[in-house]
Amino acid sequence: MKSDRILSIYTLAFLAFMFAPLLLMIVASFNNISPPSVTEWHGFTTKWYRFFWMPDSQLAADPVLRTLDRGRFIGCFGNSMFVAGIVVPLSLLLGLAGAIMLTRWSSKANGLLWWVLLSPILAPGVVLGLSALVFWARLGVGAGLYTIIMAQVTFIAGYPMLVLMARLQRQPIELEEAARDLGASPLRSFLRITLPFLAPALFSSAVVAFLASMENYNTTMFAKGGSCTFATEIGAMARNPNGHPPVINAVGTAIIVITVAAALAHALMKRREEKAK
């Protein structure tokens, strides 16, 4: 049908729009010029990648690379991993607790709790960072990784909550009751019945929470104080008056490759599952 053709072409155009900037970014990451460019080709290079492991002497020889603080960059990345390492489990815990309260606790306060727990997802990210900063400062905790963690958890916990809630609503409450009726303690019933049922949802929301924590810029910028994360450090490079160094393109390309690989693996796994059925 004709309208189907138009829709297909439109979809392809949309995908092209989504991917084109990413492809340009990859191309520029191999171009030997800073700031990155796709219009002037100055020769193929991998130095924007090698930046992360090349010896210091080589680093000092390059006029662009020597202005970058590699140690700081890697330190900030380490900070991000540390932050995500706490944010992910904490968000899963809060999200799980929230999901259980919202689906299994029938009370008049339930509607209010919905609003309160979902409000961080609805609020502008900058506001969350700012309020975490101000609140913890009032309790005597200075801005830093701790406030970043608290600010991020505030809204990231909402994602696991929504995912787990959808899953919990599909699990009949009778399953937990049946386990109790057969003599299982509440803890055993939870660990043996509810948790395995939620496991796939927990896994996928852990991935989402990890990505959200790693990429978060808006909230983190407000809460970070003097510390830095991967995202704020990347963001800071934009302020370079000569334009950002193509090292960012190299990092971006690495992220794209990892993402594509993960998404492909996921899709293939799903297909195999469907075939097995």
Binding site: E174, A178, D181
Partner: peptide, 12 residues
């Protein structure tokens, strides 16, 4: 021991 209306067998 209760047999539930929807049986509540553990699916996994």
């Amino acid at each position: 021991a209760l047999i539930f209306q929807n049986l509540a067998l553990f699916p996994l």
